[in-house]
């Protein structure tokens, strides 16, 4: 399905623009919204381009720059912090050879930090794409990442 058709169905729904942006980002192949995507959404929703930019840049789940095939979001909120999220983050940085906000050279992973993911019952936690990984230890990371490579 083309992008235009994919988002047209959302026009009359409450919260439709955000659903459309989610869809465009998912279809981009690089987990981001391009200027063309923004233009397209503005046209389909009959909104000024600037206001679609405004919306898209507000939310942390949307990126305006290309990202890796998989986006890793490590929770840095207090409940995860208390049980060692910083060790998880530094182990990931070491393992992937990137800093927070960067993408690995092979384009596989982008490393990000996030606020509470709502899965504190299994802290420390991270999400890779839409999958949750919890009860992380520095030792458990390599195996998890291998599942995505």
């Amino acid at each position: 399905m083309g992008k235009r058709e994919a988002i047209a169905a959302f026009v009359d729904q409450p919260g439709g623009l955000i659903k459309a942006l989610h869809r465009l980002q998912d279809q981009s192949g690089h987990n981001f919204l391009s200027p063309q995507d923004i233009e397209l959404a503005a046209e389909v929703f009959d909104l000024p381009t600037a206001s679609v930019w405004g919306t898209a840049t507000f939310y942390s789940l949307f990126s305006m720059t290309p990202r890796g095939r998989h986006v890793i979001r490590v929770c840095e909120s207090a409940p995860c912090h208390v049980v060692g999220s910083l060790n998880i983050l530094s182990e990931l940085e070491k393992h992937l050879g990137v800093q927070v906000g960067e993408t690995t050279k092979d384009g596989c992973f982008t490393l990000e930090v996030a606020s509470c993911l709502g899965v504190c019952g299994v802290a420390p936690a991270m999400m890779i794409d839409e999958n949750i990984h919890g009860n992380l230890t520095p030792q458990s990371l390599a195996k998890i990442l291998a599942g995505y490579a």
Partner: peptide, 28 residues
Amino acid sequence: IDVCLGAGAYVCGEETALIESIEGKRGE
């Protein structure tokens, strides 16, 4: 009932920001 999705912004839990977000705007 309809289901609407958030997009990663804590402030959108605030009721008026949430309403802005449902209207498709920045969640301010």
